[in-house]
Amino acid sequence: MDIKDIIKPENKVYGKTPLLTDAVMHYCPGCTHGVVHKIIAEVIEEMGIQDKTIGISPVGCAVLAYNYIDIDWEQSAHGRAPALATATKRLNPEKYVFTYQGDGDLASIGCGEVMHACNRGENIVIIFINNAIYGMTGGQMAPTTLLGQVTATTPYGRRADLNGYPMKITEIVAQLEGTCYVTRQSAQNPAAVRKAKKAIRKAFENSMMNKGTSFVEIVSTCNSGWKLTPVKANKWMEENMFPFYQLGDIKDR
C-alpha cells in the first residue's frame, strides 16, 4: 500500500490539537514542558472547556506557556501563581483555573503560596513540573535537586551539609486537608504520557466538584541543564529521579 493512500484525512488517528497554537515552542529539544503543554491542551479540548479555562503561567522556562495553549492566560510573579489562582477562581467559580509551575517557582520562592492555597482547599489545579534544576537561569540547584546532583551552583554535587535535602513537596502537600487529589506522574514514554493525561483530566474535573485542590507533579527532564541528550535524560530520570520521587497517586478522595 502506498503511503499516499494512508495519509488521508479519514485515516488520521493522532495529530496536534487545535488548542495548541502554531507557535514554535521555545523549549529545548526534548523538553518535558512541550509534552505536558500538549496533554493539558488535549484535556481542555476533550472536555470542551476552552471558553471556561484560565491558565496561570509562572516565572521560569514556562513563563511563555501562554504562547502555546489557546486559552486566556495570566502571567504571575515568581512563585505567586497559587495566590492569583485563588482569587481568579473565587471570583469566577464557573471557570477552570490551573497554575503551571516549575520546581523553582513552586517549591522554592512560591512555597508559601502553594501551601496555603492547598491548605485552603482552593478548587484549582496545580501542575508542578519537577526537573530538579533551574532551567531558565542556566541550570542552578533547585529545592528538588537530588543529593550528589551536579548543577551550576552545586558544581561538586549537592551536599546535604551545605545545601540541605531534596524536597518532596508533593508528599507535604498531600498531608494538607485541603487537597483532594495529589499524584506524581511522568511523561517520558507513551504509557506515562497517557497516565499523566488521565491524571490532569481528573484534576480538572475535580475543580468543578468542590472537593479541594488537585496537585499533579510531573517528574520531568531538563536535558540542557543536566547536560544530556533528551533520550539519555529520560534514562537518567528513570534511574535517578524515580527511586526518590516515586510515581503514583499519593492521595485521592
Partner: peptide, 13 residues
C-alpha cells in the same frame, strides 16, 4: 505578598 497577588488574579478577570 499573597494578598497583592490575589488582587492580580482577581483584577485579571
Amino acid at each position: 505578598t499573597s494578598s497583592i497577588n490575589m488582587l492580580y488574579g482577581g483584577a485579571c478577570t
